[in-house]
């Protein structure tokens, strides 16, 4: 009887623990930690960059509720579940992780983790948002490659309020090279007051066998434009294609056999047959001599 009660007790304890597992408990002393970094634009911006590289792949874009369908679901930054946390709780959860959520204690510095908290707080209704994302603007991007000087020349325009296109100054333009499975970022430039920018392509950029590179030019976020793809620009180093398979190395079959191996093998086999033939011939000779003497 006591055993049974014990069992039930253990079962209840187990279930209770499971239930608690759903909720993410943070130690009391961690909850009330104060954020040592200031809630300002530069910290929130840095936090956003960190968010984009480390968190976005699961939590999705802020406010779009497009996180990955995992169990438990990674909440959106703007959601009540996320914002109900104190700053200390957010910091603890980012640091230690749980289940599918990585522990960033080992990969992101303490200051940067607090900056991430700042970024999350940017979407708290109680806070004045410091980072306001303007609706993306329509923009035009023109680019060409100067093959002799190995430069990419860019000209950017943005649509003004009256629908006319104006010169886009001081915008960051990223330049990348198309590779087998994605675009390799090679550099960024800012446009000048005339909306123009020049980017010198690094000398060690590898193209295809002829040195041709597909250069992709695109504007940073905040602008709606199609990236410009400059096909087959002769600005890179020709790709070296070292011959991988040496015939001698992989010799398991006749067509790949090495000459010395083939000759020594045939020599050995031939030698063996010759030896046998010699013995047989000698036997025959003895037999003949014996016959003559009879």
């Amino acid at each position: 009887m006591i055993k049974k009660i014990n069992l039930i007790f253990v079962a209840i304890l187990f279930i209770a623990q499971q239930g608690m597992g759903q909720e993410w408990l943070v130690p009391e002393d961690q909850k009330t930690l104060k954020n040592p970094t200031e809630y300002n634009l530069s910290n929130v911006k840095k936090g956003k960059d960190l968010y984009l590289t480390n968190c976005k792949s699961c939590h999705g874009d802020a406010g779009k509720n497009n996180g990955l369908p995992l169990v438990p679901p990674p909440p959106d930054v703007t959601s009540d579940i996320m914002q109900a946390n104190t700053e200390g709780e957010l910091f603890y959860k980012i640091t230690n992780g749980r289940g599918g959520m990585p522990q960033f204690g080992s990969t992101i510095s303490e200051d940067d983790r607090w900056r991430l908290v700042n970024y999350i707080r940017n979407y708290n209704p109680a806070n004045e948002p410091v980072l306001v994302e303007a609706p993306p603007q329509k923009a035009k991007l023109l680019a060409s490659v100067n093959e002799t000087e190995k430069k990419v020349e860019v000209f950017a325009e943005v649509e003004g309020n009256d629908g006319k296109f104006l010169v886009l100054a001081n915008a960051s333009v990223s330049i990348s090279a198309k590779k087998a499975f994605g675009n390799l970022p090679i550099g960024e430039v800012l446009t000048n007051a005339e909306g123009r920018a020049e980017y010198a392509i690094p000398k060690d950029l590898i193209g295809d066998e002829q040195g041709l590179v597909n250069v992709v030019v695109s504007l940073g976020e905040g602008f709606v434009t199609d990236p410009v793809i400059l096909d087959a620009a002769k600005v890179g180093q020709p790709k070296q294609v070292p011959k991988l398979i040496k015939k001698e190395v992989l010799w398991s079959t006749n067509e790949n056999v090495q000459t010395w191996l083939l000759l020594s093998y045939l020599g050995a086999v031939g030698g063996a047959w010759l030896a046998i033939a010699y013995v047989v011939f000698q036997i025959f000779k003895i037999w003949r001599v014996g016959k003559q003497q009879e």
């Binding site: 792949s57 990955l68 990585p102 590779k179 087998a180 994605g182 390799l184 790709k239 070296q240």
Partner: peptide
């Protein structure tokens, strides 16, 4: 892979791409 473990690419063109983040690097 959901965790960004794998990079794959062409050694001749010296670029590999991450299967999860689709980021390409040298």
């Amino acid at each position: 892979c959901p965790n960004g473990v794998y990079w794959f690419g062409d050694r001749n063109e010296n670029a590999v791409t991450n299967g999860t983040t689709k980021e390409t690097t040298s």
